[in-house]
């Protein structure tokens, strides 16, 4: 059932993606070709314009992704989707997979095309650099791998927050707000998340202490310490900070995971709560 739901959700947005992704590729190639003509002033403009165009495409596709999911379960197509005898968990998981596909897919394609644009039009070996960075720096150290996992986790949490906002924002009690319900809830989540992150960074006694070379601005010698950023923050205010070290609290990772779990539970429970299809 999850697979079937996933495929049905993919159909609607897939039709748009089938046009937008090739369009993005076309924009990149066109931009590169044009900039290779080396017309003096226009060359730098080309890159700006094509970057802007790519950004708009990616942004548009992400908006459509969210919009279609909304219409599937709370809008136009609600009478079809909500008549399907599937379990709440099956709906939830299929939507998660749908969002991950399009949000991550679009993000990767976007970044890839940007990199390609830079490399092809300026000759700078971006792909090589990135490859080196990834293999020698990021994946070579446990810290790097931790960072990658953190980035993927953040992506997942964003998706969870989106579904949470749509599910709870569409409960019967928010009926009057219409589509504003989910938007409002996402904003509340975002603000709460940021505040929690800052508080956790400062206060939770777990952090990474790094050597900071003020000359080159590079970090080295990562060390796990049992303190948050609070002390370093105070010291900075009093201009007392140790110029060679910086402590970044990482306790926020736990709070973020906790927040995500809370949202998953609330979303799951909201499926059984009183709701009214607003179609």
């Amino acid at each position: 059932m999850i697979g079937k739901l996933y495929r049905l959700e993919m159909k609607e947005t897939g039709r748009i993606a089938k046009i937008v992704y090739p369009l993005m590729i076309f924009i990149t190639i066109a931009g590169v070709l044009f900039s290779l003509l080396n017309i003096p002033v226009l060359a730098s403009f080309t890159n700006t314009i094509s970057t802007l165009a790519l950004t708009l495409c990616a942004f548009y596709l992400i908006v459509i992704t969210v919009r279609n999911d909304y219409h599937n379960f709370q809008g136009k197509r609600g009478y079809l989707f909500r008549s399907i005898p599937a379990k709440s968990s099956e709906f939830l998981l299929s939507r998660l997979a749908y969002y991950i596909t399009f949000l991550w897919g679009t993000t990767f394609i976007y970044i890839f095309l940007l990199m390609a644009q830079i490399e092809l039009s300026s000759g700078a070996p971006i792909f090589l650099l990135v490859n080196v960075f990834l293999t020698q720096v990021l994946f070579a150290s446990p810290w790097g791998i931790g960072l990658v996992i953190f980035i993927l986790l953040s992506g997942l949490i964003t998706v969870i927050a989106l579904i949470f906002a749509i599910a709870l924002g569409s409960e019967a009690r928010f009926h009057r707000l219409g589509a504003g319900g989910p938007v409002l809830l996402y904003i509340i989540y975002y603000i709460a998340s940021q505040l929690l992150t800052i508080a956790s960074m400062l206060l939770i006694p777990l952090g990474i202490k790094m050597d900071l070379d003020p000359a080159t601005g590079s970090f080295a010698n990562f060390e796990l310490v049992t303190e948050g950023t609070f002390r370093y923050f105070l010291d900075s205010l009093r201009a007392n900070a140790d110029p060679d070290h910086v402590v970044i609290g990482i306790g926020f990772i736990f709070t973020q995971i906790l927040l995500a779990l809370v949202m998953v539970i609330l979303t799951y429970r909201s499926f059984d709560k009183k709701f009214s299809l607003r179609a």
């Binding site: 136009k76 197509r77 609600g78 009478y79 079809l80 909500r82 008549s83 399907i84 005898p85 179609a279």
Partner: peptide, 15 residues
Amino acid sequence: TRAITSYLPEKTALS
């Protein structure tokens, strides 16, 4: 009950 009821909405829910 969704498994045993078939619903025709006023406006079509199909794309």
